[in-house]
Design a protein around this nucleic acid. Structure first.
Lengths: 155, 155
DNA sequence: GCGGTACCGTTATTATCATAACGATCGCGC
DNA sequence: GCGCGATCGTTATGATAATAACGGTACCGC
């Protein structure tokens, strides 16, 4: 039978697709994320905020109070992980938590005044950081990149 | 003066560049990497190999024996991190380590016979995984993505 | 009502990852 | 030769991640 996928064709006449680690998307994505993350930490690290922590604050800033579980989904973190992040932010007085009265299971997370002020102050900083990370690309290339990454993330 | 960057212009007449978390490269890259990583773990996780572990094996497969420190640079891992990875792979008999006689500081890492066999067997698996991750993109878009990601990672 | 299913939060375990501080060795310059 | 900066590996600490297992709660069908 003919090859049905993009796999190599074994001993068939097709040219072998040689393996190279530098040609694997996962490896490239990891390296690119390392760079972007380093840029953010450099600019925002003075406030002891990691990229996931800032993403959590930014999401709360956009959405207002949401349940801890939904918040996790909004920043693609597992329940166990968003729990830890919320806990750290709460210890620093940047977010506060209450129980939803109509659904006792839910922990509702919201920004404190301090958290909102800090987040608002740092939004332009992260935008500048994004610009710095994207510096090697021109305007059109950035648009293309965003489109491709969004489609990859969506699966 | 006219706006000189993509920054917002404060109170000036320019349209404000609104912040959106979903428009930050770092966030998009993190999500895309999560997807790629999940795909790899799904296919290769049965062997209890994480993406960084497999990257390490693949690099050794490509390069032969190299020092632990250089190996770390070849997979973009800090000395403290590549140390842990090498240690785990060594405990499982996939790599072995020796001291460089001419430079006592260096720990030379190389694949064992088992490690080489396992890596060789898994190379096509990761290539298939890369194809799966890239499934939403056509051939030309993949080339563009690779170019953009490489330039981002290079800084 | 009631029972089962689905969902939420927690705990535990394991692996990444970055940073800082430290001892040991190498190699260059003088 | 010899010292001193640079490099290599290690340790420690703290944060991110995925997974599995568990108890508690809500909701839906009957």
């Amino acid at each position: 039978m003919p090859t049905t996928s993009t796999e190599n064709a074994g001993t068939a006449g097709g040219r072998e697709q040689a393996y190279r680690l530098d040609d694997q998307v996962g490896f490239l994505l990891r390296r690119a994320y390392q760079r972007a993350s380093a840029n953010l930490v450099e600019k925002i690290g003075g406030h002891d905020l990691t990229p996931p922590q800032f993403a959590t604050l930014a999401r709360l800033y956009e959405r207002g109070k949401v349940s801890q579980n939904l918040l996790g989904r909004l920043v693609t973190m597992e329940p166990a992980n968003i729990r830890d992040v919320v806990q750290r932010l709460r210890k620093r007085g940047l977010v506060s938590t209450t129980r939803d009265p109509t659904d006792t299971r839910l922990i509702v997370v919201s920004l404190t005044a301090r958290g909102r002020a800090l987040t608002r102050a740092l939004l332009p900083v992260e935008m500048a950081c994004t610009s710095k990370t994207l510096a090697p690309l021109d305007e059109n290339e950035r648009k293309v990149l965003y489109d491709l990454l969004r489609r990859l993330a969506a699966g």
